[in-house]
């Protein structure tokens, strides 16, 4: 039972983190939400911390 509760909490924490990250990136106009992300002509990577 305990491991499953941990799993549930982990999923919720992950979702919260993703949501905050997404909104932060979107606010800068980055391509976090863009299906073309890795191959687009825009300089997404630079805005996303030079990954």
């Amino acid at each position: 039972m305990n491991w499953s509760i941990l799993l549930g909490v982990a999923v919720i924490a992950y979702a919260a983190w993703i949501l905050v990250r997404h909104i932060r990136r979107s606010a800068k106009g980055d391509c976090a939400a863009c299906p073309y992300c890795s191959g687009c002509g825009g300089d997404c990577k630079k805005h996303e911390g030079g990954k």
Binding site: Y14, A16, L19, A32, P35
Partner: peptide
Amino acid sequence: DFLQRAFTIILA
């Protein structure tokens, strides 16, 4: 990218 979106923002 589609899979990445599905398991990140769509999941959230």
